[in-house]
């Protein structure tokens, strides 16, 4: 599974990245987690609000810092 956190580097984006990272390590998931900070790349996902969480190229969460249960749901666990 491949997970991307999209956000230009504001506080909300950073806490989203940390939250996703935590869920992945807590559950020992085999996930490739990357952070996308480049606006042009970000816009390919057609989002209008950041931060966003993309799982296998599908936008699952956008516009707010997700809770742990929300992240789990997006990751399908």
């Amino acid at each position: 599974m491949e997970v991307k956190v999209l956000g230009p580097g504001c506080a909300k984006c950073k806490s989203t990245y940390k939250a996703v990272e935590k869920v992945i390590s807590d559950n020992n998931l085999d996930v490739k987690l990357t952070k996308v900070e480049d606006i042009m790349e970000m816009m390919n996902y057609n989002i209008m609000t950041t931060p966003a969480v993309v799982v296998d190229e599908v936008v699952k969460i956008k516009g707010h810092v997700p809770s742990e249960s929300e992240i789990k749901e997006a990751l399908g666990i």
Partner: peptide, 12 residues
Amino acid sequence: CSCSSIPLFIGF
């Protein structure tokens, strides 16, 4: 959130 202004702009 000021960092959302660009994605919003492009989205529009």
